[in-house]
Design a protein around this nucleic acid. Structure first.
Length: 294
DNA sequence: TATCTTTGACCAGTG
DNA sequence: GCACTGGTCAAAGAT
């Protein structure tokens, strides 16, 4: 898909794409769930408009759904584990955004403005392929600014761990700190990936009303998005969900790791079921009833 | 009982 | 060297 069609698609979907410096941002009023590796930001009223510059030619399909976490499994981001974006051009040195991406589908699903299907009423994305000083550790920074408007009443009922631990991206996150920083009036929560030996971290900035205003990813996952086995039915409490241990599929790790370093093709289900499953993120469809209860 | 979040303290980087 | 700031640690409480 060409960049123009991509931007057209986003624009038509209420997404605002623009690039600022090294940041490629996608913002607007769109329901996006998966977000790993992306900046998510709600800008104002969410009226779609392009600030700039041609965004990278993301191979997005015309699907109305996409899963951001899958992007982390793709070379688009994983390439950042091996090489950083050009600090001067902001361009990916690897193929991903250079228009030669082989992925037939961009792994995200744009949820049109329909607000009836998901708890997330709207979410606006900003994607930043952060560039760190090459002199410093070569860890890519993926900044994500997200606003998850669950609706004031609904959001307040969602336990914090449901947001923080999984953070809608399919990965397991463990909160290890929270701090009020000066440069932002909102407190920051610090998360680590729970996958063994994974150094990926993220910083989630949450507004006073509970909305996630910014997510900053530090370091890439050295593992694919985990596959989870389903727990036996019968455990319906939220705590059971929190206590559910994610089981990583070793074979998946091997194969996907290989794909990440090479040319992995990304496939994802555009169906609503899939999207909801992604949203359920806690443990797939098993947790959807929990979400419904919530 | 295990695992999680919370939160104050501590540490390191920077000006 | 000092103060400020952001990031991390770890004990305590919660689930």
């Amino acid at each position: 898909m060409s960049s123009s069609s991509f931007t057209d698609l986003l624009a038509s979907s209420g997404v605002d794409c623009y690039q600022e410096d090294e940041d490629f941002r996608v913002s607007g009023s769109v329901s996006l769930y998966q977000s790993d590796g992306f900046n998510l930001e709600r800008t104002g009223s969410g009226l779609p408009k392009f600030k700039t510059a041609q965004p990278p030619p993301l191979p997005i399909s015309k699907s109305s759904h996409f899963a951001f976490s899958d992007l982390l499994d793709s070379p688009l981001l994983l390439c950042s584990s091996h090489s950083l974006i050009s600090p001067t051009t902001g361009a990916f040195p690897c193929q991903g955004f250079n228009g030669i991406n082989n992925h037939s589908d961009f792994p995200w699903q744009i949820q049109p403005q329909s607000q009836s299907q998901l708890p997330i009423v709207s979410s606006v994305l900003q994607e930043t392929y952060g560039v760190q000083d090459p002199q410093k550790k070569q860890v890519p920074v993926h900044r994500e600014i997200a606003t998850q408007s669950f609706g004031s009443d609904r959001q307040s009922k969602i336990p914090s761990y449901m947001v923080s631990r999984n953070s809608n991206d399919g990965y397991g996150w463990r909160k290890y700190g929270q701090k009020q920083v000066k440069k932002s009036e909102n407190p920051r929560s610090y998360f680590k990936c729970t996958y063994p030996n994974c150094v990926s971290k993220k910083i989630v900035e949450t507004a006073s009303d509970g909305q996630i205003t910014e997510i900053i990813y530090k370091g890439g996952h050295n593992h694919p998005k985990p596959e989870f086995t389903k727990r036996p039915s019968g455990s319906t409490s939220i705590s059971s969900s929190a206590n559910a241990r994610r089981v990583f599929n070793p074979s998946s790790v091997v194969s996907e790791t290989h794909d990440q370093s090479e040319n992995s093709s990304i496939s994802f289900d555009y169906s609503e079921k899939s999207f909801k499953s992604e949203y359920g993120e806690i443990d797939g469809e098993e947790d959807q009833p929990q979400m419904k209860r919530l």
